[in-house]
């Protein structure tokens, strides 16, 4: 559904993404993980049309979308959330979601109906009239999700929707994300919470220093020597193995 081909992004002398390629299969939940500063969010920013890559190609459902403006991609069916939540703070929860719903429903009653349904789905159903600024971090993450969902995307890019939530909040939101896939939405998610990655993702790509260093099922990736070293430093994999051997 989504293909990223040899994408490179340079900011002056800094190469944030270096020749990265990845594929997201229709109907899957695909994870993108990697240490801090690996270029995950930059890659997201490129895919969602907010940045034009220095080199490489992005294709969505077979059509090249490199350099297409963000709002056009939203029309085509790519929704995204922001890692740093960006609620329309002066508006109510419902009004926030209505902005997304208006994309495909030009009439207000239709848009409001959809927005209310989406709010119910993500667990904001009882907070429709509350000002968005009154929501907690968990509430704001849900609002990000709801707004993106209201645009009725076919591909949803989730940028750390679980970061900053406590374990019980994470537990609450996992079934919501899983139900989205059951509704037919393909999901690409950046996530640091490994518990979520392991329980949700069908396939995981690992980005380190701008390059994809591993891909596979969550279990395969977690055991991969290069991945362990990317997170814990050179030689860590060998030391871990050695530790296990000593325990045994």
């Amino acid at each position: 559904m989504l293909t990223v081909d040899n994408v490179t992004m340079r900011f002056g002398g800094l190469t944030a993404v270096n020749d990265a390629s990845m594929q997201v299969k229709a109907g899957s939940i695909t994870g993108l993980i990697g240490p801090n500063g690996a270029g995950k969010t930059t890659l997201f920013t490129i895919v969602s049309g907010f940045l034009k890559p220095t080199a490489g190609k992005v294709a969505f459902e077979g059509e090249t979308i490199t350099g297409v403006a963000a709002h056009r991609l939203a029309e085509r069916g790519i929704g995204r959330t922001f890692q740093i939540v960006k609620p329309f703070a002066g508006l109510s929860v419902l009004e926030n979601i209505v902005v997304g719903a208006f994309l495909r429903h030009p009439r207000r009653p239709d848009a409001e109906r959809l927005a209310a349904a989406v709010a119910e789905k993500v667990g904001l159903g009882d907070r429709l009239d509350a000002p968005a600024s009154s929501l907690t971090v968990a509430g704001r993450k849900r609002l990000e999700l709801a707004r993106a969902l209201a645009t009725e995307p076919r591909l949803l890019l989730l940028d750390e929707v679980l970061a900053g939530l406590n374990p019980s909040e994470v537990r609450d939101i996992l079934p919501v994300i899983r139900s989205l896939r059951d509704d037919g939405i393909t999901i690409l998610m950046i996530e640091h919470v490994m518990q979520a990655v392991v329980s949700l993702c069908d396939e995981v790509f690992v980005l380190a220093q701008g390059a994809i260093i591993a891909r596979g099922t969550p279990a395969e990736v977690v055991a991969d020597q290069k991945v362990i070293e990317a997170y814990l430093g050179h030689g860590a994999a060998a030391r871990l193995k050695g530790g296990e051997a000593a325990d045994a």
């Binding site: 907010f50 709002h71 960006k86 209505v98 902005v99 997304g100």
Partner: peptide, 25 residues
């Protein structure tokens, strides 16, 4: 109450978020 009005207010509050929701700023 219209779509145009909602989009206008949205871009006042946050332009990037508005773009992500399909608003041609």
């Amino acid at each position: 109450g219209s779509r145009f009005g909602a989009q206008l207010v949205a871009l006042r509050e946050n332009e990037e978020a508005a773009r992500a929701l399909g608003v041609d700023v």
